[in-house]
Amino acid sequence: MPTAPLATRYDGLVCDLDGVVYRGPHEVPGAVETLNQVMADGMRVSFATNNASRPPDQVVDHLRALGLEGGSDGSAWSVVTSSQAAAAYIAGMAPPGSRVLAVGGPGVHEAIAEAGLVPVTVTELHTELHTGADAGSSEGVPLVAVLQGLGVDVTWTELAEIAYRTQAGLPWVAANLDIMLPTGRGPAPGNGALVAAVRTATGAVPHVVGKPAPDLYDLCRERLGCSPARTLACGDRLDTDIEGANAAGLDSLLVFTGAASLQDVCFASKAIRPTHVARDLTGLRTVVPRISDVPGDLVSVRGDGTIDIAPSASAELVLPAVVAAIWAALDGGEQVSSDPAMWRALEVAAGLA
């Protein structure tokens, strides 16, 4: 069992944003204060977001408005988007100055230019075609790929152009496959929904760089300058944040301030299980054990599938002990109750309610 706070056991943190640091425009309580403290103690932080529509500078401004201190030039913290990861992937297979068909919001276009490539819009492409230029080229320079990220003004014409280009053999890179975008009015179609439209029409399959693929995590870790063993990933979603961390070979921290519930984590398949769990980001400053290291006598699963917590279980160990015991039971073929009353009681005992 560890004796030092979680943050001191790693050099770098790859941290999700929505549901971890903020919810919409508002800070998750304690998140910014915790981040300021761990960075003051020497931890470097890279905020990894699947949101490909906003340029990093807009996210930086949001974080500063919430009170995050220090610069964002990589010395203390920085923001990395899935658009940047997608542009970096394309830059790795094409020479500088190559032209990339850009479909999505401003973040897509800025990421392509930042990577030393030239973003080309569908409108510009159609203008070239109407003026007699060869399809997909200008002054003899062909398109090398299409990058698709979320944009609120993406049109049928743009989706159709992606379909035409991919069927003609142009490499297709998608920033992410997030089906849903949370908005103030409720769920709206995300980039994954638009990608699915093209896939359904053509059968083509894009290379995806956003979570849960490892590309975004790899780029964040490279910018942090940390080894995989000394990098911790933190998020609130099992199927993106945690699965992506596992794919990238990183330890992970799942926090319960966003999408995942205690029951979700306890019933998670092995591919999406986190290394650590904590109520919120303040867990970085506490002695959070690896779930695999929690003593097995603190929580047990009875024959009827209900959970028994030993009186000797300290408050800070109940949460990881519950998760560890249920994983062990399920992996051993035992049944675990889904009774809502039991799960509400477990959340109270684990400090989540």
Score class of each variant (00 low, 15 high):
Pro2His: 13
Ala4Gly: 00
Leu6Met: 13
Thr8Phe: 07
Gly12Pro: 02
Gly19Ile: 00
Gly19Tyr: 04
Arg23Cys: 12
Gly24His: 05
Gly30Glu: 11
Ala31Thr: 05
Val32Pro: 07
Thr34His: 06
Leu35Lys: 01
Ala40Asp: 15
Ala40Trp: 09
Asp41Ala: 15
Asp41Val: 02
Arg44Cys: 11
Phe47Lys: 14
Asn51His: 06
Ser53Gln: 03
Pro55Gln: 13
Pro56His: 12
Gln58Val: 11
Val60Thr: 14
His62Tyr: 00
His62Phe: 02
Ala65Val: 09
Gly67Gln: 06
Glu69Gln: 02
Ser72Gln: 03
Gly74Arg: 03
Gly74Ala: 09
Trp77Gly: 06
Val79Pro: 12
Val79Met: 00
Ser82Ala: 10
Ser83Met: 09
Ser83Phe: 05
Ser83Lys: 06
Gln84Phe: 04
Ala85Ser: 13
Ala85Pro: 13
Ala87Cys: 03
Tyr89Arg: 15
Ala91Leu: 02
Gly92Pro: 11
Pro95Cys: 00
Arg99Lys: 14
Val100Gln: 06
Val103Ala: 02
Gly105Cys: 09
Ala113Cys: 00
Gly116Gln: 00
Pro119Asp: 02
Leu125Ser: 13
Leu125Cys: 07
Leu125Gln: 11
His126Cys: 10
Leu129Asp: 14
Leu129Lys: 03
Leu129Trp: 12
Ala133Trp: 07
Ser138Phe: 14
Val144Tyr: 06
Ala145Met: 09
Val146Glu: 06
Leu147Pro: 07
Gly151Asn: 05
Val152Ile: 09
Asp153Ile: 03
Thr155Gln: 04
Ala160Arg: 09
Glu161Lys: 10
Glu161Val: 01
Ile162Lys: 00
Ala163Pro: 01
Ala168His: 05
Leu170Asp: 05
Pro171Val: 02
Ala174Met: 07
Ala174Gly: 08
Ala175Gly: 12
Leu177Arg: 14
Leu177Ala: 13
Met180Ile: 12
Met180Thr: 03
Gly184Thr: 12
Arg185Gln: 15
Pro187Met: 00
Ala188Glu: 08
Gly192Phe: 11
Leu194His: 08
Val198Glu: 08
Arg199Leu: 03
Thr200His: 10
Thr202Ile: 04
Gly203Val: 07
Gly203Tyr: 04
Val205Thr: 12
Val208Ala: 14
Val209Glu: 11
Gly210Glu: 05
Lys211Phe: 15
Pro214His: 01
Asp218Met: 02
Leu224Ala: 06
Arg230Leu: 01
Asp241Leu: 09
Ile242Asn: 09
Asn246Met: 04
Asn246Ile: 09
Ser252Ala: 10
Val255Glu: 00
Gly258Val: 11
Leu262Pro: 11
Gln263Ala: 10
Val265Phe: 04
Ala271Val: 11
Ala271His: 13
Ile272Met: 14
Asp280Met: 07
Leu284Arg: 12
Leu284Trp: 13
Arg285His: 14
Arg285Thr: 15
Pro289Thr: 05
Arg290Ser: 14
Gly296Asp: 15
Gly296Ala: 15
Ser300Ile: 07
Gly303Asn: 09
Asp304Asn: 12
Asp304Met: 10
Asp304Ile: 04
Gly305Trp: 07
Thr306Tyr: 05
Thr306Lys: 06
Ile307Met: 06
Ala310Asn: 15
Ala310Arg: 07
Pro320His: 09
Trp327Gly: 07
Gly333Gln: 13
Asp339Ile: 13
Trp343Phe: 11
Arg344Trp: 03
Ala345Lys: 07
Ala345Ser: 14
Val348Asn: 11
Leu352Asp: 05
Ala353Thr: 15
